[in-house]
Simulated scan of single mutants.
Amino acid sequence: MIDTHAHIYLDHFSEDVDEVINRALESGIQKILLPNIDSTTIDSMLNLEMKYPDICFPMMGLHPCSVKVDFEKELKVVEGWLSKRRFLAVGEMGTDLYWDKTFWQQQKEAFNFQSELAIQYDLPIVIHCRETIDETIQLVKSHENKGLKGVFHCFTGSVEQAKQITDMGFYLGLGGVSTFKNGGMDQVIPFLDQTKIILETDSPYLTPTPHRGKRNEPAFVSIIADKVAEYLHTTKEALIELTTANANALFFPTQK
């Protein structure tokens, strides 16, 4: 299995990250993909990559909740790092109107800027969108025919929104919300394009049932896989094979 979205370089894991990674490996996780947040998280993320180079794979991007007055300076940091070395993706980037609507225009500017960087470096984008899924679909469509690719992480939209996303060639990241009793994903997941679904935790956030209220961690991908397999009326083994192949196709396309 691949946890395609985990922030295990954050302070939430500072005391026991080695144990967290060991539990992940024991549960069947082979790779943990690390989306960046902003300039303050880069060092801890790259230190974790240095310690676990065959397991932890960093991305480079600016999270929409970190798009503030100084967002252009933050984007210069992202641009600088992408010019220096290879990253797995541009992310975590996107849009968010849940917490604050103050910097909506700047979020759109940051989205377009990072999308162009992804096109330039032939990297996928990892999209966060909260209360903004339709607007974000339109932002992606504005870059159609340029080779933009990526994933809508933590997908919790409708079947119709999912179809718009997968018709553009984008993937859907399924995480802890898939296990929530009132998450609504039981009405959506059975109708998704199965060639475009991947698994994630968003650790330390969005912990799956039955661990809600506790810290999320990559080992819990196994719980999410159980629930998604149930919705798709398939075996967990088949679901893992499918989603791992999908994740490899998006993030590791040159590997056989």
Score class of each variant (00 low, 15 high):
M1C: 02
A6P: 01
H7S: 03
I8M: 13
G28M: 02
N36D: 13
T40R: 06
T41R: 11
L46V: 06
L46S: 05
D54W: 06
I55N: 11
C56D: 05
P58S: 09
M59I: 10
P64R: 03
C65V: 10
K68H: 15
K68I: 14
D70Y: 03
R86N: 11
F87G: 15
G91W: 07
Y98E: 02
Y98L: 02
W99C: 04
K101D: 15
F113M: 14
L117T: 14
L117K: 15
Y121C: 03
D122A: 02
I125N: 04
I137H: 06
K141G: 11
K141Y: 01
H153M: 05
H153W: 11
C154F: 04
C154W: 05
Y171R: 12
V177R: 09
T179A: 07
F180D: 01
G183H: 13
I197D: 07
D202A: 08
S203Y: 09
S203D: 10
L206I: 08
P208E: 04
H211I: 00
G213R: 12
K214V: 04
N216R: 01
P218C: 06
A225W: 00
A225R: 03
V228F: 01
L232D: 13
A238K: 10
L239T: 06
L239C: 10
E241F: 12
Q255L: 13
K256I: 12
